[in-house]
Simulated scan of single mutants.
Amino acid sequence: MKVGVEALELTYGEHRAVKNLDLTIPDGSSVVLLGQSGCGKTSTMRCIAGLESPSGGRITIGERTVYDGASGTSIPSHKRNVGMVFQSYAVWPHMTVLDNVAFPLKMKGVGRAEARRKAIDVLEVVGLGHLGERGASMLSGGQMQRVALARSMAMEPAVLLLDEPLSNLDARLRDELRVELRRIQLDRGLTSLYVTHDQQEALALADRIAIMQGGRITQLGTPEEIYAAPASASIASFLGVTNVFEVDSLDGNRAVLADQGGQLLVDEAEAGIPGTRFACIRPEHVRVTPATGEGAATATNRMRGTVEVAVFQGASIRCTVRTGTGLAIEAICPPPVTGTLATGSEVSLEVDARAVRLLPEDVTELQQAQEVVAV
C-alpha cells in the first residue's frame, strides 16, 4: 500500500528529531532513508510504525489515516498492519524456525493449520524451507535474520519497515542478503521503507533514496541520480566523495582553491552555476599513471605528485597523492601493469574537467519533490 507522510514533526523536549518532513512511498516501491547516526531516519520509521508519538503532521497507510496531529488521530501500532525487521534478530531460541514464523499468526487468531501453511510458504521465499524443524538457537546470524524477515512477511503487512537489519552481519553475508532482500521485494511487490547509514545498501535496495540530514530530507532521487549528482558537498562526502576542496573564486572555468592555492579546470556548465563553494571529485575519476611530463590538455586536469599511502584492495588500489601545490587527492585505480604503486612513488594524475562538480556546502532548504514518483 501507498504510505504518505506530511509535515511530520517529532520533538524530544527542546530537540527536534524530525522537522516538517514530507515523503510518499508508492505502492510496491522501496524507499531507503540514508543518513548518519542521529539524523532522524529511525525516528521517522518509528513514527510510521506507531512506536513514537509525533508532535505534528499526518501519516497515511493506503487510504487510512493512522496519525493526524490536527485531529488527534493515532492508531495503535498493532492495528496499523506494518511489519518490522530490526537490527537484533528477536528470534525465540526455544522454538523451531517454523514455530517462530507461525507464532505471530496464531496470536492474530489464524488457525493452526493455516498458520503452518503460511509459515512454510514464506520460509521457502527466504530460502529456509529446509530448516523449518530446526531449533532457532542452532541458526547462524544470517539465517536468524531471514527468520525475522519471514516472520514479518507472514503477517502480510501493508508496508514492511526494516531498521538496519544487516548491520550485525559480516561483510560477505551482508552482500548476499542485500541481493536476496531486493529479489524478495521485487518478486512480492512489497511496499518497504529501509533505514541504513550504508550507502552500498541504499544503492542496492532502493527504488528511491531519501538523504536525511538534521531531521530533514535534503535530497530525494533514484540511486543513479543520488550517486551521479549529489546536491551538496556534505552529501557528496557522505556518499564517498573524498576529494572535497573549498573554492576561493572562479576564473572563467578554472576554480581557484582556497587553502591549497591550486586550480582545477571545471566544465563550463559547472562554472556558470552561481553560489557554489566546493569542488568535488570522486576518487574513481582520478587516473594515476607513472610520472610523465604534465603536458597540456584543454579538458583535463594534469598534475604530478607523490604517493603518500597506497592500499591494495584486490581489484583496485586506493591511494592518496600529494601534488606539488600541496593538494592531497585520493584515487581508486587498477593495479599497474608493471611494478607497484608504492609509497613515495612519483606519479601523474589526470582528472577530466567534467568529473569536477561544484557544489554548495549544504542543502539549506528541502529541495526534493513532494512525492516519490513510482519507478
Rank of each mutant, 00 (worst) to 15 (best):
P274Q: 14
F238K: 07
G35E: 00
R354F: 11
E270F: 05
V66N: 00
L366C: 13
S137V: 08
R16Y: 02
P26G: 10
Q370R: 15
V101F: 11
P104K: 08
S192I: 00
A271L: 06
G40F: 09
V309N: 05
F238I: 04
G83L: 08
T306L: 04
E176Y: 07
I332V: 14
V31H: 04
R58E: 03
A229D: 15
H197A: 07
E133I: 02
Y194C: 03
E361I: 12
L205R: 02
L131G: 01
D362Y: 15
T44C: 04
S345P: 01
H94N: 06
I332E: 13
S77G: 01
V126T: 07
R182M: 02
P165T: 04
R151Y: 14
R188E: 07
P157K: 09
Q263V: 14
M84G: 03
G261W: 06
T196P: 10
V18N: 06
L349R: 12
G295D: 09
T60I: 00
H197Q: 11
Q145I: 12
A90E: 07
G272M: 12
E156F: 00
V247L: 09
R322F: 02
P165Y: 12
L33G: 06
V97E: 13
L131P: 07
Q200V: 13
G28P: 03
N100C: 07
P157V: 10
Q313F: 12
P274C: 06
Q367V: 15
V82Q: 04
M155Q: 15
P93R: 09
G13H: 07
E124W: 02
A231S: 13
V3H: 03
M95K: 14
I281S: 07
S88V: 00
T24I: 13
D99Q: 15
I61A: 02
L264H: 08
R151T: 05
W92M: 12
G293A: 11
D198Y: 06
V244P: 03
V372I: 08
Q199N: 14
D198E: 10
L51M: 09
A136P: 01
E246H: 00
G40C: 06
P93Q: 03
N243A: 02
R183T: 05
E156C: 08
D68S: 02
T320S: 13
A202C: 08
A90Y: 00
P230V: 11
G4S: 15
G69D: 05
L220Q: 06
E6V: 08
G252F: 09
M303V: 09
T338Y: 14
L34Q: 00
